Simulated assay, not measured.
Amino acid sequence: MRVKICGTATFADLACAVTAGADAVGFLMGITHVTQDAVTPEAAAAMAAALPPFVEPVAVTHLTKPTDLIRIVDASHCTTLQIQDMVTPEDIAEVREALPYLRIVKAVHVMDASAVATAKDFAGAADAILLDTRTVDRIGGTGIPHDWNISAKIVEECLVPVILAGGLTPENVTEAIRRVRPYAVDVHTGVKKNGVRDAERTRAFVVNARSAPVPHTSIMG
């Protein structure tokens, strides 16, 4: 099971995620909704340059205009882009044409069963779908789980990898993986303690995710 640790705001956060064995780290940039962990693209680029091989830097943004998305990726030197807010498949295609090397992840907020159709719509444009939770003022980092039954249905019906996020913790990630069977899991607030990324919780999250039993599924078609 692959693991992304999101909301990397300092070199201490970065070291915590890498030491725990994360496959990817997310940098929050271009923020239009509430978050406590935003960084500038230049700060993200400095941290990305310090990553060891095989740990992916991910630009996570609330921005929606293709020109802004391209600018964020160029400035941060990230190799994956996670789009949290609403865009169109045509917007994604424009970004992909400008940055053909880029992997693009589209967040889908699982509020009700309509998320299944939304995920399938974006599966043709994005390289992966990320299932998250939102509130009135937050479009990520809510710490609130969503309906895993809907998430499991999306995994069954989507032809691209599905990443599970939204309220995951070291305590519930094993059950979440067992029920949803995602390609990867993503955590932000669930590995914090007193508002700061905690090494013990981060390590426990990665260990529990890696040890969760999940049937093998191919992502190659």
Rank of each mutant, 00 (worst) to 15 (best):
K120A: 08
L102Q: 05
M111V: 13
P161I: 09
V110A: 05
T189A: 05
S211K: 04
I219F: 05
P66R: 02
E42L: 13
A9I: 03
P53Y: 13
T40P: 13
G21M: 03
N172I: 11
V206Y: 01
A123Y: 06
P215L: 00
A98E: 15
P215S: 00
T169K: 06
S151L: 00
E56Y: 01
T174F: 04
A22I: 05
A123K: 01
V206S: 00
V55D: 12
G143N: 07
V136F: 05
A115V: 01
I5N: 11
I70C: 04
L81D: 06
G195D: 11
L51K: 12
T67R: 13
R179K: 13
V214Y: 00
P161V: 08
A45L: 15
C6P: 01
H77C: 09
D68P: 03
L14M: 15
A184R: 03
H62Q: 05
G21W: 09
P170G: 06
A199D: 12
K106E: 11
A125W: 14
A152N: 05
V3I: 14
R179I: 07
G190L: 08
D23L: 03
A107F: 08
H109N: 13
L164K: 10
A59M: 15
Y101P: 04
I104Q: 11
E97K: 15
A128N: 10
L63I: 08
